[in-house]
Design a binder for these strands. Structure first.
Ligand SMILES: [Zn+2]
Ligand SMILES: [Zn+2]
Ligand SMILES: [Zn+2]
Ligand SMILES: [Zn+2]
Lengths: 135, 135
DNA sequence: TTATAAATGTTATATTATTACATAGTGTTA
DNA sequence: TAACACTATGTAATAATATAACATTTATAA
């Protein structure tokens, strides 16, 4: 994995990089105030600094928000550099979250039309169940 | 629409009924504190009274939570009396929310298996776009 | 350089949700 | 009925999540 075009297009600012690094190396989704606590030693002192970086990172698709958990996870799915079509599985016991990367699912949802014939290019899907370990 | 078996099984308590009625007659999803404000004249004074009723109503499938909006909408889809498999379309301009009732979609998602072969009976899907009026 | 947009720093505040504990109602069974 | 379990309610306090407002600085580009 070299430096792709899209990486260069969105070189991160200092705060964005600090916060992305933290989320990226975390094995689990992180909440905003957990992030705040963990980056205070790096000089990020206020909630707003965290939320601004999170907003930007979500916007450019480097991270995603898990809406049902108010938590953030790094994107490891090269096909969703734009944060508009996401799917996750969430374990209801251990709270493990995995981004789902399925061409079939993406295609089905991208082509889905509602009763009015409306198509939606943007969606968020969260599946809930028990992970391997918790079953 | 007579009184169905399932309606009887979950006869609502006073607070639950007050809060359900408000949500049910609302043309748009309601937030918890909007609900609180609107039911104070009926004697419901504290946030917890609202959240407890909301939790129960979600649990029995009378309402759904729109996770990306922290708001609640009544279920008008007889097929999802259990609050475990939901899909919505959300207009990003006027915030109109519609519950999607599509046998095809439900079937596809209920049968979807991830890379580990895991099936999920519970999910929440939120589509985003522009509604008819806002297009 | 000058203008513009993006990002930062800081304080205060708004919004959303839960903990803890006491009390009251409801339905079931001995 | 009386005892019990279960559900729901009332109330106060607080925790957790997120944004408004304003001043300043840094990066980008014409
Ligand atoms: Zn992704
Ligand atoms: Zn698990
Ligand atoms: Zn429904
Ligand atoms: Zn609209």
């Amino acid at each position: 994995m070299g430096i792709s075009k899209i990486d260069k297009m969105h070189s991160l600012s200092k705060n964005q990089q600090i916060i992305f690094d933290l989320i990226d190396k975390s094995p689990e989704p992180l909440k905003a105030y957990t992030i705040l606590f963990n980056v205070q030693k790096k000089g990020i002192k206020a909630p707003l600094q965290v939320y601004r970086a999170l907003d930007k990172l979500v916007e450019i698709g480097k991270i995603h928000k898990i809406e049902s958990r108010n938590a953030f996870i790094a994107c490891h799915n090269s096909s969703c550099q734009v944060a508009k079509a996401t799917a996750f599985s969430i374990c209801e016991i251990c709270e493990k979250v995995t981004e789902i990367s399925s061409a079939g699912l993406s295609k089905y949802l991208a082509n889905f039309k509602d009763k009015d014939g409306m198509k939606y290019s943007k969606y968020n899907l969260e599946f809930f169940g028990l992970c391997k370990k918790c079953r």
